[in-house]
């Protein structure tokens, strides 16, 4: 029983970060109908951002998020404005191949600049885990969890209450209709891509103190993102949140009750089953 609760707790904690990554991918898909193969590499950039803030400028990695998220937002807008905008017109397969190229480019440039060494962030205040009710809660994960919730709530507010949020939701539902209603679809797409990139980068910052950092970590993360957004239904924000937490739980339960070796397999098998049996996602809210 204790093991079950323990693995549920760590599943939810990691899952909240998966959710944040998944939300970034899914809003971009919703508005532009593109699957961004480089999404995991954007997370990786956020991780290194936190690392260098910590090692280079002696800034707490969690604090550095206030710099990195806006920077990643601008970076994402630039990627869309100067690279992706024209490619998207060529169809979804072209975009898929293009972002695969972008992914290889970013990951290997990072490998060149930062080398393939595994790095970790050691926090002075995070040596021992918290132990509420005899359940071990690693401090970095707990902080990440809290911040992920704050960011997700902020995102909800943005989507629900602001004009930009309304434009994003309208475009996501029907780009043509949104254009007819006076939404600047092009600009919305650029901003959405910035938003997706900021979420990926932010999640990277939050993940950095809990994971090993290496430049090709994006390859594993991107595969996980696909599982997350497909579980929740491509294009659905609540779906991605649920999918992220679900994957976190599946992985941590799988590691305890199935085997560490096969825990990644479970995610992929469920992914395939969902794609085949419920292409709109487990909750039936996505767009296929």
């Amino acid at each position: 029983m204790e093991t079950l609760i323990q693995s549920l707790v760590s599943g939810v904690l990691t899952g909240s970060l998966y959710a944040m990554i998944g939300v970034g991918l899914t809003v971009v898909f919703g508005v532009m109908r593109i699957i961004n193969m480089a999404h995991g590499d954007l997370v990786m950039l956020g991780m290194y951002g936190a690392f260098w803030a910590h090692v280079g400028a002696r800034v707490d990695p969690f604090l550095s998020i206030v710099v990195w998220m806006p920077l990643m937002f601008l970076f994402g807008m630039a990627i869309h404005r100067f690279l992706l905008r024209k490619v998207v017109l060529g169809g979804e397969l072209n975009t898929l191949l293009y972002t695969a190229g972008l992914s290889l480019f970013i990951a290997n440039l990072a490998l060149f600049v930062w080398t393939g060494d595994y790095r970790t962030i050691k926090l002075s205040y995070a040596v021992m885990p918290l132990r509420p009710f005899d359940i071990a809660v690693p401090i970095p994960l707990a902080i990440s969890f809290g911040l992920a919730i704050v960011i997700t709530v902020a995102l909800y507010w943005l989507l629900a209450r602001t004009d930009m949020g309304r434009a994003i939701r309208a475009t996501s539902q029907d780009a043509e209709a949104a254009a007819l209603m006076g939404v600047n679809v092009e600009r919305t797409a650029t901003i959405t891509f910035g938003l997706g990139t900021a979420l990926a980068g932010g999640a990277g910052v939050l993940l950095a103190p809990s994971l090993y950092l290496y430049p090709t970590v994006g390859e594993i993360l991107v595969a996980k993102c696909f599982v997350i957004v497909v579980l929740g239904g491509l294009g659905s924000v609540p779906g991605a949140i649920a999918g992220g937490i679900l994957l976190g739980i599946i992985e941590s339960l799988g590691a305890v009750y199935v085997s560490v070796a096969y825990k990644d397999l479970i995610g992929f098998v469920i992914f395939l089953l969902v794609l085949l049996l419920r292409p709109a996602g487990l909750f039936g809210v996505g767009k296929s």
């Binding site: 290889l104 480019f105 290997n108």
Partner: peptide, 8 residues
């Protein structure tokens, strides 16, 4: 790096 660039 060049593979990625040429692909794009």
């Amino acid at each position: 790096i060049f593979y990625g660039l040429f692909m794009m």
